[in-house]
Amino acid sequence: MTQLLSVKNLCKSFGDQLIVNSVSFDVNESSTLGIVGESGSGKTTLVRSILRAIDPDSGSVRYNGEAGWQNLHELSAKELLPLRREVQMIFQDPFASLNPRMTVQTILEEPLVIHDLGDKAWRKQRVMEMLEKVQLDPSSAARFPHAFSGGQRQRIGIARALILEPRLVVCDESVSALDVSVQSQILDLLKALQSELGLTYLFVAHDLRVVREFCDEVLVMYSGNVVEQGPVEEVFNSPDHDYTRLLLSAIPSPDPDEKLDPLDRATLNLQLA
C-alpha cells in the first residue's frame, strides 16, 4: 500500500494554550483514518492545519501527490493550488458551508472555474454527473441551498468536495449534525464513493460508534495528544490507554440488556506521557 499523507510532530497553540501537541501519523491510500476525541481535544485544529486553513507552529505535513512527496507548509500559495485539487474537505454544518446566495449549479461549478477546467457546457455536464453521483435530482442545480434538507445539503457539500476528483478527503464531523437514518445514508454514500473512486478519508468524529463502523484505522486524541492509534477493531477490542477505555465504556448500547457502566475517572490513569 502506498502512503498518501505523513504528519510528523505537528504542534499548534493559541496563546499559551497547547491545542495540538506533537501529533504524528501516516495515512495509506484508499483507507479511512478516524480521528476521535471529545470537544477540545484538538481534532479540528489538527485537520485544519493539515489543510493549511491554519498554520501550525512546528512539525511537517507531507503529502504524496501527483508531484511526489511535498511538504504542504513549504509551498507558496501558487504551488499549493494544484494540490487543492487533490485534498478536499466536507464540513460539519450543512447549513453554514454552502453560500446561501448561490445556486447549487454555481456552488458546484466554482471549483472548476477556479481551476480553469473545461468550458461552460462541460462544467454544466460535470455538475449533473456529480448530482447523480450523490443521488440528487438534476433539477436541484437551479435551486438555492435553503430549498434542501440537512442531508441533501450534505450531499451537495460532498459533490463540491469531489468535483475536482481529489484523492484525500477530510470529513470534519461531516455526519454528526444529521439524523441517524440520514447519517447512515450519507455514510453508505461515502463508502460507495470510496470504493468507486479510490478515495482516502480523514474522518473526524466524536461518535465512536460511527468511527467503528466507518474507519479502518483510528487515532484517539485527548487534550491535544494522540493517546492511542491503530486498526479500529484492535483499538476497540483491546484498548491500551485508560482514556480509550473510558470512552468505550461510555458508549450507550442500543441493547437494553447491555447496561451502561461508565468507568470512574478517578480510578483511571489519564496522565499524558
Binding site: 441517524v180 437514518s181 447519517q183 447512515s184 445514508q185 455514510l187 461518535d207 460508534r209 460511527v210 467503528r212 463502523e213 466507518f214 442500543p254 441493547d255 437494553p256 440488556d257
Partner: peptide, 26 residues
C-alpha cells in the same frame, strides 16, 4: 423498552435500528 428495541413491530422502528452505527456488528 425491551420489546421495542429487541422486537420492533413498526417498519420505521426497524429502519431506525438498522440505521444505528454499528448495527451491522450486532
Amino acid at each position: 423498552v425491551k420489546q421495542i428495541l429487541k422486537n420492533p413491530q413498526h417498519p420505521y422502528t426497524c429502519h431506525l435500528l438498522a440505521s444505528m452505527p454499528g448495527a451491522e456488528r450486532r
